[in-house]
Nucleic acid binder design. Structure first.
Lengths: 349, 349
DNA sequence: GTGAAAGCGCTAACAC
DNA sequence: GTGTTAGCGCTTTCAC
């Protein structure tokens, strides 16, 4: 079992000191071109790879970024956002030689806080991504400040946190969906919302609400769901059971929308003839359900890339140059077949 | 900005040497109970947290495990397996104080190999999980042996790799689906397979094939898909366009099955009256589509837990005690509403 | 331009 | 029992 070569081996083989090797390897000035070439060659020849562990110790840096996913178990396999987001993050991190540490917690806040705390106190990461921001004051903000752990957040353009943020306007996508429905003639446009403690859940609801208002339509009925299919089904049943059911429903994600379509169909409604539906996320499946779902596309991959780039810059610069936010193109409406003009006659339930 | 206390600080405060502190902290014999208590107390008081980086360096261990996900971008958000698997892995790793490093590669084999290589050569992880095993000789087997990187594989009970494995019988689930359909009276039972280079894609197909044979049924038509919704749609269109279309289709995953149902419905077929369908995975959505999908449930969370436990043991034991495989309960059929007896009359296409 | 040596924070062998 | 010391492999300051 051959031990992998260390910087000392290279130094010996090249006939120089460890320090010089280090300088040569890191492109630092003050090494004669000839020496440098020789060092690089022997390093190459020996198959030298710098030990990440040793660098981490002497730099007091982990060269890794962390992501804590707090999710109820049911939502784990169904959420389309994280895998794409993570893929985006990875493309950036891989280039920079950083790694991504994942922590998934399925319990409550205590467990989540513990997740961040351990990442920080163990020095396993140099910074973290803050997704699923809570409205008001997210408790993680204080925690991370406490832990002195750099972070970037994902949030809506009007958000305001003490951390650098990647912003993406989801509202205009929802507004476009509402406008599209209104344009088709709908007047009772309902909403199945996500949990209102999250900025995205809350933001989408607000966008729906304000879009209705801007169009001079009355505020439609709404039910707050939980982003799960089961929750979407229950919410839909509630909405359709009302005395004057909506003719269109704007869902806060595709999962709830698809479950909602199923419920409506079971109740004998035809989509889109009797009921129009829109989703949010544009999951791969949404184009392949019956009917194909009109939805709002959000670029999770791009978000991941942008967030990783921002966090890397934020972490790398020890000087306090303000790292500005970065904005992504707004979410956009994807028209498919789940929307149509409302039925002419009022239905009876 | 207060530097976090090191072992030297604790030693000084407790009036002992670093070595003694280290022994006390690690529950090693040879420290007087009184001294030990005092050390533990001062450590607690100072808020001492051992530096993971320093331990990693002196132990030559990363205290982290790696997972390389190789996935085409389309499948990233839709695959229900990984999130649950990762959650399972995490529950075990968190207990053991290990971290999970994720690497996602969307390109080909070269990129994937590079992913493993970097994890190994950078010493970022102590071992890796090998999912999506290829049939025949998976190229990663040799690579990892080369890199001297411990690994555990996920595979079918009859698999055979040089690495410890977590095994789960998927075949009996598929066989149960076929038997269920045959019991309803179906005789032309088709299959939409996953990519045949993977053991799970191949295994499910073989299970379907052998189940038909065991029941004395003729081998049904089949199309090899790619596990994506789009692929499932295309495959289904092909099967239903044949002169004598099947009356039932067994899909290798839910995503393709749901897309297949949509295609069939667009062609005017009623599910399950005109066509029965089964899936595989039991995603959250599959109970909330129209009709709810009969499928095969596989315990991804349990797989993750078992794999993590196995890999931890495998990595921790420096002595060569053979770490046996661990077997999980077989996948089981979940009956819902997408299956029924075949239509009495032969349809015309 | 290059070498020597002192860290980074912990572990583990070896003295006492 | 406890203290001392030499690593783990790299970075970085300071002489020369």
């Amino acid at each position: 079992m051959r031990r992998s070569p260390t910087i000392a081996d290279v130094a010996r083989a090249a006939g120089v000191s460890k320090g010089t090797v280090s300088f040569a390897l890191n492109d630092r000035p003050g090494v004669a071109p000839a020496t440098k070439a020789r060092i690089l060659a022997t390093a190459e020849e020996l198959g030298f790879r710098p030990s990440h562990r040793a660098r981490a110790l002497s730099h007091s840096r982990a060269f890794a970024l962390g992501l804590v996913m707090a999710r109820p178990p049911e939502l784990l396999g169904a959420d389309p956002f994280f895998p794409a987001f993570i893929a985006g993050v990875e493309t950036e991190l891989a280039k920079a030689g950083h790694a991504l540490l994942l922590r998934v917690v399925t319990g409550g806040w205590a467990e989540e806080a513990e997740g961040y705390r351990r990442l920080a106190e163990d020095g396993r990461v140099d910074g973290v991504f803050l997704t699923d921001l809570r409205v008001g004051t997210d408790p993680r903000l204080e925690l991370l400040t406490d832990l002195r752990l750099p972070a970037v957040t994902l949030q809506l353009p009007d958000g305001d946190t003490p951390f650098p943020a990647v912003t993406l306007d989801e509202s205009s996508g929802v507004a476009a969906a509402v406008a599209h429905l209104a344009g088709l003639g709908h007047r009772r446009i309902a909403h199945v919302a996500g949990p209102q403690e999250f900025v995205h859940g809350c933001g989408r609801r607000t966008a729906w609400c304000e879009a209705l208002d801007a169009l001079g339509l009355p505020p439609g009925p709404e039910v707050v769901g939980d982003f799960t299919a089961a929750g979407g089904a229950i919410a839909t049943r509630r909405l359709l059971g009302e005395p004057e059911p909506p003719t269109a429903i704007v869902y806060a994600n595709d999962l709830m929308a698809i479950a909602g379509v199923t419920v409506a169909q079971e109740l004998g409604l035809r989509i889109p003839d009797d009921l129009s539906v829109t989703g949010f996320d544009d999951t791969e499946l949404s184009g392949h359900v019956n009917p194909p779902l009109t939805t709002v596309r959000v670029d999770a991959l791009g978000l991941g890339r942008a967030a990783a780039g921002l966090l890397l810059r934020h972490v790398d610069q020890s000087d306090a140059a303000a790292t500005g936010n970065v904005g992504l193109p707004p979410a956009e409406l994807v028209l498919r077949k789940s929307t149509a003009p409302p039925p002419a006659e009022p239905r009876n339930t």
